[in-house]
Computed example of a mutant assay.
Amino acid sequence: MLTSTRQARILDSLRSDGEVRVEDLADQLGVSASTIRRDLNALSAEGLLKRVRGGGNIEPDRIPFSDVSRQQQPEKLRIARRAAELVSDGDVILVDIGTTTALFARELRGRRITVITSSLAVIDELRSDDGVELIVLGGVVRNNYNSMVGTLTEQALAQIRATTCFLGTSGIRPDGTIADTTGMEVPIKRAMIASSVRSVVLADASKFPGVGLLNVCGPEQLWGVVTNEGADEATLDVFRSNDIEVMTA
C-alpha cells in the first residue's frame, strides 16, 4: 500500500472515531507498528492530528475550556493586547470562540464599540460593561467549549456587516490554511469571515501547525495574523507573500 493511501486511511479513521491507536491501525492496514508511528508523526507535522501516547486524535476540544485557557496564557495575553490595538471606537466587530479571543474581549472593556459573538466566554467578559454594545448570536449551546452553534447562528451572521472579524483557530498549516477540529464550528467561522470587511486570526506559536483536519479558509481570505515569537517563520512568510499583515506580540 502506498504511503499516501495508508495515511488517507488513517485520516478516514480519525474522522470517524476522533482518535486512533497504533496497534489497531497496524492490524487494519497490515503493516508494522513502526510504520504507523512514522505515518502519525508525519501527519502530526502537517497539523492534521494531535500525536498522543499510543496513537493520535483530532479532538483537543474534548479538553475542558478552563484547562485550555491555562495553556500558553502569557503568550495569549500578549496577543490579545496587540489585537485590541486594531480596534477603534465605533467599530462593529465579530469575535470568534476560543481562549485567546476571550482574553482579547477582556482587553475591550470600556471601549465604545459593538461586539457580536457566539462565545459564552466573550459574553462573560463583556456582559456587565456599559461601554460595549454586546450582541449575542443565538444557537445551540456547546457546553464543552463555551460556544453557540447551528443554523440560527449562521442565519444571524448573514445579516451582519462587521468592521473586523477576530478568529481563533486549532491550527495553521504550513501553506497558511486556517484549520479547525470541530465540524459544527467551521460554518460559523466561514460566515464570520464573509460578514466582515477584514479578518484577523489570533494564534499563539503552538498553533503552527497545531491540529485540525477541517479547512476554514486559505490565507487569501485574511487581512492579518497576530501571533507571538516562536511562530513558524516559513508559514509567516506565506502570509507576507499574500500581503497579509503579520503582527508579533
Rank of each mutant, 00 (worst) to 15 (best):
S4E: 15
S4K: 12
S4D: 14
T5V: 08
R6F: 02
I10P: 08
I10D: 04
L14Q: 04
R15D: 15
D17E: 10
G18A: 01
G18M: 02
G18K: 07
E23C: 01
D24G: 13
A26W: 01
V31N: 14
A33W: 00
T35S: 14
T35M: 09
T35N: 10
R38E: 12
R38C: 04
L40M: 01
A42Y: 05
L43K: 05
G47F: 08
L48G: 01
G55N: 05
N57M: 13
I58F: 01
I58W: 01
E59C: 05
P60K: 11
I63N: 03
P64H: 08
S66K: 09
S66T: 07
D67E: 15
R70L: 13
Q73K: 15
K76H: 07
A84I: 01
E85P: 09
E85T: 12
V87Y: 04
I93W: 02
I93A: 02
L94G: 03
T99E: 08
A102K: 01
L108K: 02
R109P: 06
R111E: 03
I113H: 02
S119E: 09
V122R: 02
I123H: 08
E125L: 03
E125C: 08
D129V: 08
V132G: 12
V132N: 06
L134A: 11
I135C: 07
L137G: 06
N143R: 14
Y145T: 04
S147H: 11
S147C: 15
V149G: 08
L152W: 02
L157Q: 00
A158P: 03
R161L: 09
C165N: 12
F166D: 06
G168R: 00
T169E: 11
T169G: 10
S170Q: 00
R173M: 03
R173Q: 12
D175E: 12
G176H: 05
T182G: 02
G183E: 05
G183M: 11
I188M: 07
R190E: 14
A191R: 05
I193L: 06
A194C: 11
S195C: 11
V197T: 14
S199I: 01
K207S: 05
K207W: 06
P209M: 04
G212P: 15
V216S: 09
C217G: 11
Q221D: 14
A231D: 08
E233Q: 13
A234T: 15
T235C: 12
T235W: 05
L236H: 10
S241R: 15
N242S: 09
V246S: 14
V246L: 10
M247C: 03
T248I: 15
